[in-house]
Design a protein around this nucleic acid. Structure first.
Lengths: 228, 228, 228, 228
DNA sequence: TATGAATGAGGTTTCATTCAT
DNA sequence: TATGAATGAAACCTCATTCAT
């Protein structure tokens, strides 16, 4: 309690010397900034907790503790636990969508594109916190239609559309033979999804070399590569 | 708790052989039978509720109400909520495993076998209560290692092994060209899993013709069929 | 309840004539005997449990298990848990009272009489199940006025009266000098009671030589003995 | 929980020095003070209920109601019912021990000292809430070894040691003749204990003049007083 | 704005008692 | 008479939410 106040005072003091650091803006924005930082801390903490325990079993107490704020503070940023969960998913997913939208222009072979994409997915999703988020959405989706809807609209439908475009390009260029594949872009990403889930549930029992699996899968679609 | 279930199961089994005594067996088995029926009702009700709400958000009250028993009765069959959940998963999965073990002998082409299998999966899992159970396991697995372990041991590892055997047969017979596929039988079932999850989460937004998708996927692996 | 006790007593009486064979008496009395045996087993088990856990924390289930009968059987002998407790105390105390009533005629010195009595108390009460019963009555008395009343009427008031008579005899004979002692016979038995409680609670920390303590106490009252 | 109590106690102490800051200390201490008051109210209420019903039969609901707080508030101060009981006993006994430690220096005759002590005991323990607490400890001791241990360590062993010292002094001064008494200081306090229990259980049937009884007992030990 | 003590509805679990067999 | 499965009231405890400071 005392240390909190001290911290707050220190921060407030710092706010009077706005040039003192990279993110120390004008006094007016300093308030907003601190609020935003708190919010971020809450979002971060909430994500960890929700992933670890699921929505219902997560306690706001634990989120507050992990975020380093008081329980009441959460209610200054979110209406209630449900809203927090829904907003949290949105907050975390938005940058992903942004990245997807900033597609690199389709230069090079389709296979290279897909492989680049898969590599990125491997690095940034499979076996990471973000992968766990996918599992969390699968887990809580039925009880949070708003979350499922949002996720479908922002990620799944766009992802499917993007994959379809790539597949059609591949077909047009003769890299992909099976024309029906364009109707089910899900097939293209299915093993990646499986890898995400596998890491969460079964890695302990049987580790999965996701990278190698994805390569084999792409070979299936594009034909085996001559050289490695 | 386990002994209870064992008792109940034993009783149920015994109930099918009521010749053991004129007036002793009949009432005895009727008692046991009713107990077994109650247990089944509880398991059934619990599955519905757990699927609909997840473990933490499910109330024993609701399970009891749905099963038509008093709350206390649940505790005659299960030690506590956690044990109930774990046993429930076991109870529901055991017949699935039994079915998997009763493999039809591998006659006919591998593609036919796989297609038969896929057809069965379509009919019995995708879009059914059993499919929801898979999603439930994905959702709760991390908080119930025992469940994830059991599921891996009884279903996943056997399924993977079976698929691998089929793939190797397909390779040996020349039906499958990509020899690496045997290393990742997961690829074979990935679209089916995706279909299961899709039905739970996104069917509302974009219905998925799982049957057609699986066909396309098999074409990818076995090559397109000449005739339909 | 009253009819039960009557029945039980009759049965118990019958039990003293077991010449009819090991335990297979005439059909008529065999029933009654078995019932009485059951009742005794329940009383025995209940006493153990009540002493170990107190009234509220004792489960009928445990009593039944320990007595080797079904839970429902208890209700054939006792109206409910409270009645059982009250009757139990009565049942166990009655023989004690009987013994007290069968006083040896006052021959010899008063000190010898008191010492004999103390020796008996030492052997039969302090550190035994019966001593625990005393503690149980102290513990539950306020919640069971009927028990406290019964205990007062049957044991305490008689004991006090008996002690008073002894003290008066001692005074008359010149063995006891302090005439006021007759007004508080409790003083005579106080150390014995303390010994009972001490054994239950503190024997672990500091064992108490009750016999020696009682001797010292009697020396205080009667004057030190010349010879040991 | 223990830290909570510590916090509360510290706050209460601090509340006596409110000069520490114009506007900071007042509200701070007011909060802490109210918390401490609440805790005291809970302790008070719990003692009443535990004494009236014993540990197992006491409902937290009733304690809360009597203390004028919500059920949940209890859990801000105590981990659970058991801890509450154990801490309660400690909390109530500590001032008693403090008083015992603040012994008046042994001036005057030993008999006067003991009589003063007995008078105090009469006024402050026998027939009071504190006396009931003794009975409660006797009642619950076997199920709460921690409580029995604490009580033995803090009260009984010190009390016995103090009595022994007094007795030895009395022997040295020639006020007490029976030298063996020093081995069993319990004899000195036994009638007082009996009085405590008697008041709880039998006062209704036969009121006991504890003061007079203690006087008679002391006469036994010190010899009859010439004048009253 | 931030705090965290306080609340009390609601969840899990226990167990005395009943009753069909 | 004896059983023990079934009941459901009632207990303990948790935790999302509020609000005085």
């Amino acid at each position: 309690m005392t240390e909190k106040s001290t911290k707050a005072v220190a921060a407030k003091t710092a706010a009077h010397k706005p040039e003192a650091g990279a993110e120390a803006a004008a006094p007016a924005s300093s308030r907003a900034m601190r609020a935003a930082k708190r919010r971020d801390a809450i979002v971060e903490a909430a994500m960890e907790e929700f992933i670890a325990r699921g929505f219902a079993a997560t306690r706001l107490d634990d989120i507050a503790k992990r975020a380093g704020v008081a329980k009441g503070t959460i209610y200054l940023h979110f209406k209630d636990k449900e809203s927090m969960f829904e907003e949290l998913v949105r907050t975390v997913i938005v940058p992903v969508v942004a990245k997807l939208n900033a597609l690199p222009p389709p230069t090079g072979s389709v296979r290279d594109l897909v492989e680049a994409f898969a590599g990125n997915f491997l690095k940034e999703v499979i076996g990471t916190r973000r992968g766990d988020l996918v599992r969390l959405i699968v887990a809580e989706g039925p009880r949070f239609p708003a979350v499922a809807d949002f996720y479908y609209r922002e990620v799944v439908s766009r992802g499917v559309a993007g994959m379809r475009a790539l597949i059609e390009l591949g077909i047009a260029r003769g890299e992909i033979r099976d024309k029906d594949l364009a109707r089910y872009p899900q097939i293209l990403v299915a093993p990646a999804m499986i890898a995400v889930i596998w890491q969460s549930l079964f890695a302990r029992h049987a580790p999965l070399d996701a990278q190698d699996m994805l390569r084999v899968h792409l070979d299936l679609i594009f034909g085996e590569r001559r050289t490695t």
